Measured scan of single mutants.
Amino acid sequence: SDEELKKRIEELVRRGNKDEARKLAENANSDEARKWWEKLEQL
């Protein structure tokens, strides 16, 4: 689900694993996940 995906992306970003988070968001084929990633990346 998008919610689970967003949690995983956020967790990866928090751990400093941005590349992994980006790949996850891009491969998810989910606009919501991509937007979430872009938002987190700004922080």
Results as ranks from 00 to 15, higher is better:
Glu4Asp: 12
Lys39Val: 11
Glu26Arg: 05
Lys18Arg: 14
Ala21Val: 02
Glu11Arg: 04
Glu3Gly: 08
Ala25Ile: 15
Asn29Ser: 10
Ala21Met: 02
Ile9Lys: 00
Arg34Leu: 14
Glu4Arg: 08
Lys18Val: 15
Arg15Leu: 13
Glu10Asp: 05
Asn29Tyr: 07
Lys23Glu: 10
Lys18Asp: 05
Lys39Glu: 12
Lys18Gly: 08
Glu3Met: 12
Lys35Gln: 11
Glu32Gln: 08
Glu26Ala: 08
Glu10Ile: 13
Leu12His: 02
Glu10Asn: 05
Asp31Tyr: 06
Glu26Lys: 05
Asp19Lys: 08
Glu26Phe: 11
Glu26His: 07
Arg8Thr: 08
Glu4Ile: 09
Asp19Glu: 13
Val13Lys: 02
Glu38Trp: 05
Arg8Phe: 05
Asn17Arg: 14
Lys23Met: 12
Trp36Thr: 01
Arg22Asn: 02
Trp36Gln: 02
Gln42Glu: 09
Leu43Tyr: 10
Glu10Ala: 10
Lys6Ala: 06
Leu12Ser: 01
Ala28His: 05
Ser1Lys: 12
Glu10Phe: 09
Ala28Val: 07
Asn17Ile: 04
Lys23Ala: 12
Asp31Ile: 10
Gln42Cys: 12
Ala28Gly: 05
Leu24Gln: 02
Glu41Met: 15
Gly16His: 04
Asp19Ala: 10
Asp19Phe: 05
Arg22Ala: 06
Glu10Val: 09
Leu5Arg: 02
Glu3Trp: 12
Arg15Gly: 09
Asn17Val: 03
Gln42Met: 12
Leu43Trp: 12
Lys35Trp: 06
Glu11Ala: 09
Leu40Asn: 03
Gly16Phe: 01
Lys23Trp: 08
Ile9Tyr: 01
Glu11Gln: 07
Ser30Met: 04
Leu12Glu: 03
Leu12Trp: 02
Ala33Tyr: 11
Asn27Gln: 14
Glu11Asp: 12
Lys7Ala: 13
Ser1Trp: 15
Asp2Gln: 11
Gly16Asp: 02
Asp19Thr: 09
Ser1Met: 15
Leu40Ser: 04
Arg8Trp: 08
Leu5Lys: 00
Ile9Val: 03
Asn29Trp: 09
Ile9Ala: 00
Ser30Trp: 10
Glu11Lys: 02
Arg8Cys: 12
Leu24Asp: 00
Gln42Trp: 06
Asn27Arg: 12
Trp36Tyr: 12
Lys6Tyr: 14
Glu38Leu: 08
Gln42Val: 09
Asn29Arg: 09
Ala21Asn: 00
Trp36Phe: 14
Ala28Phe: 15
Leu40Lys: 02
Gly16Ala: 01
Lys23Pro: 01
Leu43Ile: 11
Leu40Cys: 13
Val13Cys: 12
Glu3Ala: 11
Leu5Cys: 06
Arg14Tyr: 04
Val13Gln: 02
Asp19Ser: 08
Ala25Asn: 01
Glu11Met: 07
Ala28Gln: 05
Arg15His: 08
Glu20Cys: 11
Leu40Glu: 03
Leu5Gly: 00
Glu11Trp: 07
Glu20Met: 08
Trp36Arg: 02
Leu12Ala: 06
Glu11His: 07
Lys23Ile: 11
Asn27Lys: 10
Gly16Val: 01
Lys7Tyr: 06
Ala21Lys: 00
Glu38Gln: 08
Lys23Val: 09
Lys35Ile: 11
Asn27Thr: 13
Trp37Gln: 03
Leu43Asp: 10
Val13Asn: 02
Trp37Met: 11
Glu38Asn: 05
Arg34Trp: 13
Ile9His: 01
Glu10Trp: 13
Ala21Ile: 03
Asp2Glu: 12
Asp31Cys: 12
Gly16Ile: 01
Leu24Lys: 02
Asp31Thr: 08
Asp19Met: 07
Glu32Gly: 06
Ser30Thr: 11
Glu20Asn: 02
Asn27Phe: 10
Lys23Leu: 12
Leu24Ala: 03
Glu10Ser: 08
Glu20Phe: 03
Ser30Asn: 09
Glu38Pro: 02
Arg15Met: 13
Asn29Glu: 11
Gln42Ala: 13
Asn27Tyr: 08
Arg15Val: 08
Arg8Tyr: 05
Leu5Asn: 01
Ile9Gly: 00
Arg8Val: 08
Glu32Pro: 04
Lys6Val: 11
Glu4Thr: 09
Lys18Tyr: 15
Lys35Thr: 10
Ala33Pro: 03
Ser1Gly: 11
Lys18Asn: 10
Asn29Pro: 07
Lys18Ser: 13
Leu40Phe: 12
Asp2Gly: 09
Leu24Ser: 02
Trp37Leu: 15
Ile9Met: 09
Ser30Val: 03
Glu32Asn: 07
Ala33Asn: 03
Asn29Thr: 10
Glu38Phe: 06
Glu32Lys: 06
Arg22Leu: 07
Trp36Ser: 01
Ala33His: 04
Val13Ala: 03
Asp2Lys: 08
Lys23Gln: 12
Asp31Gly: 04
Glu32Cys: 07
Ala21Gly: 02
Asn29His: 09
Glu41Cys: 14
Ala21Tyr: 00
Glu32Tyr: 08
Lys23Phe: 06
Glu10Met: 14
Glu3Asn: 10
Val13Asp: 00
Glu3Ser: 11
Glu41Phe: 14
Leu5Glu: 01
Lys7Pro: 00
Asp19Ile: 08
Ser30His: 04
Lys18Cys: 13
Ala28Ser: 14
Ala25Asp: 01
Glu20Gln: 08
Arg22Glu: 03
Lys39Thr: 10
Arg8Gln: 10
Asn27Val: 07
Asn17His: 14
Glu4Asn: 09
Asp31Trp: 06
Asp31Met: 08
Glu26Gln: 11
Glu20Trp: 03
Ala25Thr: 04
Arg34Ile: 13
Glu26Ile: 09
Glu38Thr: 05
Lys6His: 07
Lys6Phe: 15
Leu12Thr: 01
Leu5Trp: 13
Asn29Asp: 12
Gln42Lys: 13
Ile9Leu: 08
Leu43Lys: 07
Asn29Ala: 12
Leu40Asp: 01
Asp2Ala: 12
Glu26Ser: 06
Ala25Lys: 02
Leu43Glu: 13
Leu5Ala: 01
Glu11Ile: 05
Ser1Ala: 11
Leu43Ala: 12
Lys18Leu: 15
Arg8Lys: 10
Leu24Phe: 03
Ser30Ile: 04
Glu20Val: 04
Ile9Ser: 00
Leu12Cys: 07
Trp37Ala: 04
Arg14Trp: 04
Leu43Ser: 09
Arg8Ile: 11
Trp37Ile: 14
Glu38Tyr: 07
Glu4His: 08
